[in-house]
């Protein structure tokens, strides 16, 4: 994204980096699309009882252009896989992916002709959450851990090591 490209080599960013990461972490906008059973638990997480707004994430974007976090909630079928990949590519950088549940992470109990055995085969995943489906608390835990990861990201990442850029 814009900022990193404009900084010339040899300049180290410290406080700015912290601030940018802090703001990215604190107002993450998830992409509101659900796939299967986990989507219902994801919705529960956003609703009254668990209230994800406590973590600055109450707003779900219906368009990938405005989102920076994709929660792959549920099994990805071979028919859906190209769509998921396209949606991921449409999201602007920086972007993160949470693979929610056993099916999205590994194919789960559905080891057959129709289901993609893990969404990490088509898009890079930052956080895997186990469970079938994971409880909302687990999802919140995963999101908090992702926040922790975002906090320590480097603005200027070496191209060969980092997946982004």
């Amino acid at each position: 994204m814009g900022l990193e490209d404009k900084i010339p080599d040899g300049i180290i960013l410290t406080t700015l980096e912290k601030m940018v990461n802090w703001s990215r972490k604190s107002s993450m906008w998830p992409f509101g699309f659900g796939l299967a059973c986990c989507a219902i638990e994801m919705m529960s997480t956003f609703m009254a009882h668990f209230d994800l707004a406590r973590f600055g994430m109450e707003v779900m974007r219906p368009s990938p252009r405005q989102a920076d976090l994709m929660i792959v909630s549920g099994r990805v079928s071979n028919k859906m896989a190209p769509v998921v990949k396209r949606l991921y590519e449409q999201m602007p950088n920086p972007k993160w992916v949470i693979s929610m549940g056993a099916c999205a992470s590994t194919g789960g109990v559905f080891n057959n002709y129709a289901i993609l055995q893990g969404v990490d085969r088509i898009i890079p995943v930052d956080m895997y959450i186990p469970g079938c489906p994971p409880r909302p608390q687990q999802l919140i835990d995963g999101i908090v851990k992702l926040h922790e990861k975002v906090k320590h990201e480097k603005l200027k990442q070496p191209v060969e090591k980092g997946k982004k850029k």
């Binding site: 299967a36 079928s77 028919k79 057959n112 129709a114 289901i115």
Partner: peptide
């Protein structure tokens, strides 16, 4: 439809 075809009957 079919974007969530899971093959449950086959499994």
């Amino acid at each position: 439809i079919g974007y969530l075809h899971t093959g449950i009957e086959k499994t």
